[in-house]
Structure formats: C-alpha cells, structure tokens
Amino acid sequence: TFVEFNGKKVEYPTPEAAEKAAKKLAKKLNLKVTKKNGNYKLE
C-alpha cells in the first residue's frame, strides 16, 4: 500500500500501517488524505 505526498511515494507493508502513516503525515503537513485504488494520497 502506497502513501503519496509531495511527489514522493512511500510503500508500507500493510494497509493499516499506510493508513496510520497517512493520517499522521496529513496532520503534520496540514493536508487531507484521499484514498484511491487502495492507496493514500495527501493533498
């Protein structure tokens, strides 16, 4: 499962880990999380 932000793509071993990381990053970077095709994107 990938988390995409600032043009970077980071892969996580589980969807749970990706979701957790996405939410944490979104909060830190003041972005919102969108889920697309099972992957997460911060914008």
Rank of each mutant, 00 (worst) to 15 (best):
K9I: 13
A17I: 10
T14I: 03
Y12A: 01
V10K: 12
N37E: 12
T34P: 00
A26T: 02
E4T: 06
P15D: 11
G7Y: 04
P13R: 10
A18C: 01
F2Q: 04
V33T: 03
F2C: 11
K41V: 15
L29P: 01
E4F: 09
K28D: 10
N39G: 15
K20L: 11
K28G: 06
K27D: 11
E11Q: 13
K9S: 11
A26M: 04
K23R: 13
F2M: 07
N37S: 06
N39S: 11
A21I: 06
L29Q: 04
E43A: 08
E19R: 11
A18N: 00
A17C: 12
N6M: 15
K35T: 10
E11W: 15
K41R: 10
L42Y: 03
N6L: 15
K23W: 12
K9D: 03
L42S: 02
K28H: 13
L31P: 01
K9C: 15
E4S: 07
T1Y: 15
E16I: 09
A22L: 03
P13Q: 08
K20R: 13
N30V: 04
E11L: 15
G38M: 04
Y40T: 04
F5D: 00
N6K: 08
N30C: 15
K24Y: 15
N30M: 07
V33C: 12
K24D: 13
E16F: 06
K9R: 14
N37R: 05
K35E: 10
K9T: 10
E19P: 00
K32D: 05
L42C: 03
K9F: 12
V10W: 15
K23L: 14
N39Q: 08
K9Y: 12
K24L: 12
P15S: 09
P15G: 07
K27Y: 09
K36Y: 12
F2A: 05
G38E: 06
L29E: 04
A26C: 04
A22K: 01
P15W: 10
T34G: 05
T1P: 09
E43V: 13
E16S: 09
K8R: 13
V10Q: 09
L31A: 05
V10I: 13
V3T: 01
Y12Q: 00
F2P: 00
N37C: 14
L25Y: 05
N39T: 10
F5I: 09
L29R: 04
N37G: 11
E4A: 03
N37T: 04
L31Y: 05
F5E: 01
A21S: 06
K24P: 00
E4K: 01
A17R: 07
K36I: 15
A21C: 06
L25C: 11
L42F: 05
K20N: 10
L25M: 10
K20C: 14
N39C: 14
K24H: 12
K28V: 12
A21W: 07
T1S: 12
K35F: 15
N30P: 02
A21Y: 07
E4C: 09
K8I: 13
A26Y: 00
L25H: 02
K24A: 14
E4L: 06
T1G: 07
E19W: 14
V33W: 07
P15M: 11
K41A: 11
V10G: 02
L42H: 03
E4M: 07
T34A: 06
T34C: 08
V3R: 00
E19L: 14
K35L: 14
N30H: 14
K35D: 05
K41Q: 14
L29T: 04
K9W: 12
K41L: 15
F2K: 04
P15Q: 12
T34I: 13
P15I: 09
L25N: 01
G7H: 06
K36F: 14
V3I: 08
K8G: 06
N30E: 07
Y12N: 00
P13M: 08
K27A: 12
F2W: 13
E16P: 03
E11A: 12
L42Q: 01
L31F: 04
F5Y: 13
A17P: 01
K36R: 11
P15K: 10
E16Q: 12
K32A: 08
E16Y: 08
K9V: 12
E43L: 09
K8W: 15
E16N: 08
A21M: 08
P15F: 05
K32Q: 09
K41H: 15
V10E: 07
Y12R: 00
G7V: 00
E4Y: 09
K27T: 08
K8C: 15
N30Y: 06
K28A: 12
A26K: 02
K32V: 14
K20Q: 12
K32L: 11
E4R: 01
G7R: 05
K24W: 15
N37V: 03
P13H: 07
N6A: 10
P13N: 08
K9M: 13
A21Q: 05
K27G: 08
F5G: 01
T34V: 14
P15H: 08
T1C: 15
T14F: 05
K24V: 12
V10N: 06
Y12W: 05
K8D: 06
K23G: 08
K20H: 12
K35S: 08
L25E: 01
L31I: 04
A21P: 00
A21K: 02
K32N: 08
N6I: 06
K41M: 15
E4I: 10
K36G: 08
K35Y: 14
G7Q: 05
V10T: 10
L29F: 14
G38K: 05
P15Y: 05
L31S: 03
T34N: 08
E43Y: 13
V33N: 01
N37K: 06
L29M: 10
A22S: 04
G7P: 00
K27R: 11
E16L: 09
N6D: 10
Y40F: 13
G7T: 04
K28P: 01
E11M: 15
L42A: 02
A22F: 02
V3Y: 02
A26R: 02
L29H: 14
E43I: 13
N37Y: 06
L29A: 04
A26D: 02
K23N: 13
K8T: 11
N39D: 13
L42I: 12
P13V: 06
A18F: 01
Y12T: 00
V33K: 01
L25T: 03
A18M: 01
